[in-house]
Computed example of a mutant assay.
Amino acid sequence: MDAELQPDLQHSGAPGGEAPARTGSVRPMTRSDIPTVARLFSKTFRARKDAVAPDLEAYLETVFFGSPHYRPEHGSMVHAGENGVTSAILAVPMEFSAHGRPVMARLLCAFMADGKDGAAGAARLARQMHAARQEMCFSDSSSPASADQCLAGGGSVLPIQSLEWRRAFKPLTAAAIGWSRAAPALRSRAVLAPLGWLDQALRRRRRSITPAVVPDCRTIPATPDAFFACATPMLFRFPLRPVWSREEFDWLVGVASLNRGLGELHVRIVLDRGGQPIGAFLYFGRKGEEATVLNLLCTAGREFEVVGQMFSSLDAEGYASAGGIAQPFMMNAISRQRWLSFKHRGYFCLVTRHADIKDAAQRNDIYIGGLASESWSRLLTDF
């Protein structure tokens, strides 16, 4: 527990251990702070002074107070100044295994401040994130300023996990969908339909657009339960990995499924010639448009087969493109694909006071991302 948070928690008289507001203090966020934090989020990230999206408050409560690991000392923090809460860090507790021992990490989702008082509070909140104070905290969408603060506080920036790969199956359609964030009309049927016909002609001329079929492998639809059973043993080769207890995994799948803006949540299992699982992937999909891969895992040594089969099956399902967070153990196999690009997605920062965790991260002996990151959150795509 952070040293400066300890007094607030010990003197809490509120139900459930929630700390009372105290002017000029850093303290755990309580449910009563949600309306203020929702306004602060909207003003900071959506340029809205007073308007708050209708279901933002309910979403904040679900995500930041609903985890089975939630405790005030493991969750979000706010700074309460003379004008109330003017700065906050939103965080979700996630359990990791570090060289066999359990570690309760914090996923940092948003760092917000408003005005002069908010800036002073933000500085105090940032000091809480220094390596000497933290079991482990991480963020996969940090700005350059936040990355600099992470490094100054003794943390690490993970360069590979800071990248996103993207593989085009229908290049013209995929390009239009990408540009539609700035020009929504490009996503209309009137635009995408003729581009689809042009893509068919382009694929006939450029055979490399179509992912190669992987001999002796096939992909089958599956349930989250099947993914859990298949993927869990595949995590064991990583000294630092999410624990994914059944309760936490089910909760994460539930909150991820709320992000309808990215499409439906799907599970696929990759089988070898003998019908044995050698890989699994979990992704959001908008049919005919994008597939956003959250988690991709495989048996050690089967990376090329699983990556190739994933792309082949997503292409066969009709997606225009697929994208996901880069992972060191998959880079060789991913990079062999044609019609592939990488882009910086935001700095992936990790802070810990434990030398063995930091060493594992710097050696890439780590599995983190997807459900074990913020990739599923509506705060990145909605509100």
Results as ranks from 00 to 15, higher is better:
His11Lys: 12
His11Ser: 12
Gly13Pro: 00
Ala21His: 12
Gly24Leu: 06
Gly24Pro: 09
Phe41Thr: 01
Phe45Val: 10
Phe45Ile: 07
Phe45Lys: 09
Gly66Met: 06
Tyr70Arg: 06
Pro72His: 03
Glu73His: 12
Val78Leu: 08
Asn83Ala: 15
Thr86Glu: 08
Ala88Asn: 07
Leu90Glu: 10
Met94His: 08
Ser97Asp: 11
Met112Ile: 07
Ala113Arg: 05
Ala122Tyr: 03
Ala123Thr: 13
Arg124Trp: 03
Ala132Tyr: 11
Cys137Met: 13
Asp148Gln: 13
Leu158Val: 08
Ile160Pro: 00
Glu164Ala: 11
Arg166Tyr: 03
Lys170Glu: 12
Thr173Lys: 07
Arg181Lys: 14
Arg189Ile: 11
Leu192Thr: 05
Arg206Ser: 12
Arg206Trp: 09
Cys217Met: 10
Cys217Asp: 03
Ala222His: 01
Asp225Lys: 05
Thr232Trp: 08
Thr232Cys: 06
Pro233Ala: 11
Arg237Gln: 13
Phe238Asp: 05
Phe249Glu: 01
Trp251Ile: 03
Leu252Thr: 01
Ala256Trp: 01
Arg260Pro: 04
Gly261His: 10
Gly263Thr: 08
Gly263Val: 05
Val267Asp: 04
Val270Trp: 00
Pro277Trp: 01
Ala280Asn: 05
Leu294Cys: 08
Leu294Asn: 02
Glu303Cys: 07
Phe304Arg: 14
Phe304Asp: 12
Val307Glu: 04
Met310His: 04
Leu314Arg: 04
Ala316Trp: 07
Gly323Lys: 14
Gly324Val: 05
Met331Leu: 15
Arg336Cys: 11
Gly346His: 06
Cys349Trp: 01
Lys358Asp: 10
Asp359Met: 10
Asp359Ala: 15
Asp365Ile: 02
Gly370Met: 01
Glu374Cys: 05
Arg378Phe: 04
